[in-house]
Design a protein around this nucleic acid. Structure first.
Length: 471
RNA sequence: GGCUGAGUGGCAGAGUGGCUAUGCACCGGAUUGCAAAUCCGUUUACCUCGGUUCGACUCCGGGCUCAGCCUCCA
């Protein structure tokens, strides 16, 4: 049974969905004013792995991940670039989708944009004002009254008094209390705006997620996820708005992924120390990035280093080497819910599931795959029944993590790699080398191997045959 | 200052109140014409000080160090 660490209670809890067999999952997506960086990539991948695991466990998952496409930064960046905010956000949405494809991230069930749910936001804000949880200020802004919600702080473990003592909240003359946050922002003349009972304006960030999640998942739903940096104030505010509105529970399980660091510091736009997914893709494959991400537990901080990326590359090469030449019925494994158990090794599947059920312990799951690869390597015969079953298990379980779904031959031979000799040239040299070896002309044979090695091509003689791969 | 969380072998990174994590690296061996890949074996741990316990890296408390949040942030 799946256990999830619930930030609300600070412990692992058995996952019990509201409605048997169904899961409503909401994840805070990105604000689209720039390219996605590795930290965004981690969110995409972590919840993609959760999505895949839930599906494999037989759940019908309604996975919602929003797009914030109205925001101060978008407006500012659009003005700088002399384009409309909607053109700017559309451009970065397209780029985000390209990044996701490169990282083998499945599209969520719904990907709502904030600008498509403005009516819901206005309705919610109106009700919050009616019930005394919000107030309209004289300048057209609407604020949420934090002290009107007794449980404020329950997610992040803060108390209103302590926050107040911090004295770091910006003072705003229109706020009744410095802790209050904006639900609706009056717009300036040249900014995007929508009509509302409080004048033309646009929504605050926090209300967007409450509106979109409730629109698509209902007032109460199963899992809400996002980066650890959103815990406070964003998620705290979502809870305050939503539970004040409905009087009931909002999300039942709160999941927070750890942040990506670089040089022991959080990778972020504001620190300007980020690498975009695109930057990294110039050097490493999406699958390598993905393997790097799932190599640590999702709640831990993760340091970005080239050593770690190279380690991920090595790990993948080991898996693909183990799979090379072994027949696998890929088609039969494609549908995660409907794999015939007879095709798989029950022991490894069980260990893998146990790791994943333990709050998505992907490093442990990966360790199981390494042991599986080891067992597979010991099975000398490529097409024995056992070999096929083990290889199928490796591919199937790898697929649950979103890796190992490519043709080993193509991966090892550097699919799409344009530098270096062509496959035909390599094959010709291998032929020549074989002739030399048969004549015991090892000088020539080694010369050919060295020349290819210098061009990044590694030859391997095994079982009387020579195979090659690009390094 | 307050609130979270973390400190594991050369590196990355799981986990457990007493039993091999795993991968990379290192060393030795098998295999190979030599390599590569693979297999086998070996070495190196649990921040610190107390407490609980027959026994703690694992539980409890103090300390130290680090990170995140308290302002937009995945």
């Amino acid at each position: 049974m799946l256990q999830i660490y619930n930030t609300l209670n600070r412990r692992k809890e058995p996952f019990e969905p509201l409605k048997a067999g169904h899961v409503g999952l909401y994840v805070c997506g990105v604000t689209v004013y720039d390219e996605c960086h590795v930290g965004h990539g981690r969110v995409m991948i972590v919840y993609d792995v959760l999505y895949r695991h839930l599906q494999a466990a037989g759940y019908l998952v309604n996975y919602v991940r929003n797009i914030t496409d109205v925001d101060d930064k978008i407006i500012k960046r659009a003005a700088e670039n002399n384009v409309s905010p909607s053109d700017l956000s559309q451009r970065y949405i397209d780029e985000m989708h390209a990044d996701e494809r490169a990282l083998n991230v499945l599209p969520p069930t719904h990907e709502p944009r904030a600008t498509e749910s403005i009516k819901s936001m206005v309705r919610i804000i109106g009700r919050l004002i009616d019930s005394g949880h919000a107030y309209a200020a004289d300048n057209g802004d609407v604020f949420y009254s934090v002290k009107s919600f007794a449980e404020y702080g329950k997610l992040s473990g803060r108390k209103i008094d302590e926050l107040r003592a911090g004295e770091r909240v910006a003072v705003d003359e229109y706020k009744r209390d410095p802790l209050d946050f904006v639900l609706w922002k009056a717009s300036k003349p040249d900014e995007p705006s929508w009509p509302s009972p409080w004048g033309d304006g646009r929504p605050g960030w926090h209300i967007e997620c409450s509106a979109m999640s409730m629109d698509l998942l209902g007032e109460e739903f199963d899992i809400h996820g996002g980066g650890a940096d959103l815990q406070f104030p964003h998620h705290e505010n979502e809870i305050a708005q939503s539970e004040a509105l409905t009087g009931g529970r909002f999300a039942r399980y709160w999941m927070h992924n750890g942040l990506v660091r670089i040089g022991d510091e959080k990778m972020s736009k504001s620190l300007n120390n980020f690498l975009t997914i695109r930057d990294v893709l110039a050097q490493y494959s999406g699958e390598e990035i993905r393997t790097f991400i799932i190599g640590s537990h999702y709640r831990s901080p993760l340091n970005y280093t080239s050593e770690a990326l190279l380690a991920a590359r090595t790990a993948l090469r080991r898996f693909y080497t183990a799979l090379r030449g072994r027949p696998v019925q890929r088609a039969a494994l494609a549908d995660a819910h409907a794999v015939d158990p007879a095709l798989l090794d029950a022991g490894y599947v069980e260990r893998f599931n146990a790791a994943m059920d333990d709050d998505l312990n992907t490093p442990e799951a990966l360790a199981v795959l390494h042991e599986l690869a080891n067992t597979l390597n010991k099975e000398a015969q490529l097409d024995s029944e056992r070999s096929i079953r083990l290889a199928s298990t490796l591919v199937c379980l790898g697929g649950r993590l979103g890796i190992l779904d490519r043709d080993p031959e193509l991966v090892l031979q550097g699919e799409g790699d344009s530098d270096g000799p062509t496959a035909e040239q390599i094959d010709a040299l291998i032929d020549e080398r074989r002739t030399a070896r048969e004549a015991k002309d090892f000088a020539r044979s080694d010369q050919i191997r060295d020349e290819l090695a210098a061009q990044g091509v590694v030859l391997e003689d095994a079982g009387g045959k020579t195979t090659w791969r690009r390094d």
